[in-house]
């Protein structure tokens, strides 16, 4: 059971990085929209796992994407932030249910899953573009890019999460 978890997560990690850098980083829809689907890793990661490991893994995930796209460590920054904030967001979205030992993402309602995913993406993108552009003169540009990218990422993430739905045990 435990090795199964590890296996799934390793495969997921590798595939998401490859799909991100080889397909989605080249999309360039309208010139600048490259959805960041690797955020799904944070969405899919098991709830009741060791938190420090999770933050460490997210750091590695972001760093790997950075390696490929020559973006210093910006992806890593955004990714560890949402990884750190994930329990807070979950408590906000799922309420008391989240505290139960038996809680599973698949048992939550559709609206809750959607809100959770959307919040993760919004926070990730806001941090990413703020650091990437890094100037208050261009605050409108930051918002424009963040909004457009959030919509694109959300669309693809919903598509992926319905295609590869998590364990139905």
């Amino acid at each position: 059971m435990i090795s199964n978890y590890y296996f799934i997560n390793v495969i997921r990690f590798t595939l998401l990085v490859l799909v991100q850098v080889l397909i989605f980083n080249r999309l360039n829809f309208l010139g600048y929209i490259n959805p960041m689907v690797y955020v799904l890793f944070i969405y899919w990661y098991p709830v009741k796992q060791h938190r420090a490991t999770f933050i460490g893994l997210s750091f590695l995930l972001g760093l790997f994407v950075d390696f490929f796209s020559d973006t210093m460590a910006i992806n890593a920054m955004a990714t560890i932030t949402i990884a750190y904030l994930r329990p807070t967001i979950m408590r906000f979205v799922f309420g008391v249910n989240y505290e139960f030992q038996s809680f599973k993402l698949s048992s939550a309602t559709q609206v809750q899953q959607f809100t959770f995913l959307a919040l993760l993406i919004v926070i990730h993108h806001l941090i990413f573009f703020t650091v990437e552009i890094f100037s208050f003169d261009n605050i409108l540009l930051i918002f424009k890019k963040a909004v457009a990218m959030t919509l694109a990422t959300l669309f693809f993430c919903l598509l992926f999460s319905s295609l590869f739905s998590i364990e139905k045990k």
Binding site: R51, A52, I55, G56, F59, G62, D66, F67, D70, M72, A73, I74, A76, M77, I80, T81, Y84, V131
Partner: peptide, 29 residues
Amino acid sequence: NFLLYVFLMLVSIGFTIQSHSYHQSSFFN
């Protein structure tokens, strides 16, 4: 957890600033 987060954040910021100042980091490319 919070300390780990802050530590990793500082590491990332370090990498980013280092490559801002002159060339793209020779490690991260």
